[in-house]
């Protein structure tokens, strides 16, 4: 079972990489714009998992200092702080792209990328 040891040693990173690739495949393969936004969110979740996995430590406790227990091992607090910024950025991207999709649906009556592209080509032909 020694060949499994490297996989177990990096299992959280592997999960993050798989989530990232699933999100990227969703963005590329689907023509539905809402599904593309969902894919961006899944990619973001993969990055969050990667950072949080970097910060975790065996038998570490959350970094809240208790003066009564001096010899505690704390997890790495810095990735958690960075991920707060990342979550804010992903929420902002989601909101802005959703608003653009709503405008597209008002204008073209569809949220399918290829359909919208066809309608735009037809409009260009009329002009």
């Amino acid at each position: 079972m020694t060949f499994l040891q490297p996989i177990i040693d990096h299992i959280n990173y592997l999960g993050a990489a798989i989530l990232f690739v699933i999100g990227l495949a969703t963005v590329v393969n689907h023509t539905n714009l809402i599904k593309k936004i969902l894919g961006i969110n899944i990619m973001g979740t993969g990055v969050f998992l990667f950072f949080i996995a970097i910060g975790n430590v065996t038998s570490g406790v959350p970094p809240i200092i208790d003066p009564d227990q001096p010899d505690q091992l704390f997890i790495n607090p810095l990735p958690s702080v960075f991920i707060l910024t990342g979550i804010v950025v992903v929420v902002s991207i989601t909101v802005y792209s959703l608003s653009l999709v709503i405008r597209m649906h008002e204008t073209y009556g569809s949220i399918d990328q290829e359909e919208i592209a066809r309608m735009m080509a037809e409009e260009a032909d009329h002009d």
Binding site: P6, H10, I11, G55, N56, V57, T58
Partner: peptide, 15 residues
């Protein structure tokens, strides 16, 4: 990823 230091270790370069 396989070349990175293992998860859950205190010796990781980020710590």
């Amino acid at each position: 990823i396989m070349n990175m230091p293992a998860i859950l270790s205190v010796d990781a370069p980020s710590y």
